[in-house]
């Protein structure tokens, strides 16, 4: 057992998957010799060779399109987009092909691929490196959208994503790539997709979040606990399809819910969760559902990026608002 970070959990899962299945290949810009700009694929080319850890020409459309093509022909490609902002040229192949391949051919072809990329802000990166586009991908039928928030979930969910017979968008919260270390056993055990993880049990309030916002959300939960409030914390983990059962069950007990996301609020995952609570859990609610989100603005350049993102103070403030309603 080793103490590893979230990004090392990704690397460990990639290596594990490549060892157990020769059809798994890794491709992307700078993933080979350099081991990825964040080091997510460090050491993999040395271990598996340049035909399984493939440095590509600098062409995102090509990476996406060829990944789709390879996936239909018996390979299990894991492609990297270097940053979330660079996934935009790939959308055509994800929306129009990856997510539709099985359906439009009545199962004749399928697309068991993973597109993984660092997402979100908070590391003082240049423009176009810090967005949170999970709602965009969650709108695309046929895809899975997954975001881990701990080293063990990075390992277990990545293994599940690679083994999944359908395309998975695997978004890695880069702000917490090295935030915490955890004991992770490299035993090849995957974690389930399509379900939320309840990180902390509570009875007064449910905080729902995913990705890097887990950090501020857990800190807010700590502060609220010190005030005598019992807080349940749910890590959504798989954003599409959404496990509303876990969230509704929790809110049926607490009666109060605050959803925290880094992404803009408008037409967002937080909005979908809030709408589903209104649809299925309204009679259990003791207070309005609050969403604490990034603003519906362009992600600012880095001097202001932390002001854009939900802070512990904003989360606690929203929690207090819903707790005040009796």
């Amino acid at each position: 057992m080793a103490q590893i970070t979230l990004i090392e959990g990704v690397t460990l899962a990639l290596a594990r998957a490549m060892k157990e299945d020769p059809s798994v290949v890794v491709l992307g810009e700078d993933v080979g010799v350099n081991g990825g700009v964040f080091r997510a694929t460090a050491g993999l080319q040395q271990e598996f060779g340049d035909e399984r850890v493939i440095d590509t020409p600098l062409a995102e459309v090509m990476i996406a399109g060829m990944t789709v093509g390879m996936a239909t022909q018996g390979m299990k490609p894991v492609a990297e987009a270097q940053f979330c902002g660079f996934t935009m040229p790939m959308v055509d192949h994800l929306m129009c092909h990856a997510g539709r391949m099985r359906n439009r051919t009545r199962g004749r072809l399928s697309c068991p691929m993973v597109l993984r990329f660092p997402t979100g802000g908070g590391i003082h990166a240049p423009e176009h490196h810090s967005e949170s586009p999970e709602a965009l991908f969650a709108q695309m039928p046929g895809l899975r959208v997954v975001m881990p928030s701990s080293p063990s979930r990075a390992y277990g969910l990545m293994l599940a994503a690679i083994r999944d017979p359908d395309p998975v968008i695997f978004m890695e919260p880069k702000r917490i790539y090295r935030w915490q270390k955890e004991d992770v056993i490299d035993d090849g055990e995957e974690l389930p997709l399509d379900v939320c993880f309840t990180l902390r049990d509570g009875s007064d309030l449910t905080l729902v979040t995913w990705g890097a916002m887990i950090k501020e959300t857990l800190q807010a939960a700590d502060q609220l606990e010190q005030q005598g409030i019992s807080v349940e914390v749910i890590d959504v983990a798989t954003i599409s399809p959404l496990d509303m059962d876990t969230i509704i069950e929790s809110v049926s007990r607490t009666g109060r819910c605050v959803i925290v996301q880094e992404a803009p609020r408008h037409c967002s995952v937080a909005s979908e969760i809030a709408a589903s609570l209104a649809d299925a859990g309204i009679f259990d609610l003791l207070a309005p559902v609050k969403r604490v989100c990034g603003y519906d603005t362009v992600m600012p350049l880095y001097r202001n990026e932390m002001k854009y993102m939900p802070s512990v103070r904003r989360i606690v403030h929203a929690a207090q608002q819903v707790l005040e309603v009796s």
């Binding site: 459309v61 399109g65 060829m66 093509g69 390879m70 022909q73 092909h97 439009r104």
Partner: peptide, 21 residues
């Protein structure tokens, strides 16, 4: 591959197939 309406995207799917082979 099936018929491909989004123009030229099929070229990359073929390239991916060729890569697999």
């Amino acid at each position: 591959f099936a018929w491909c309406v989004p123009i030229a995207t099929q070229c990359l799917h073929a390239a991916g197939a060729a890569m697999a082979y």
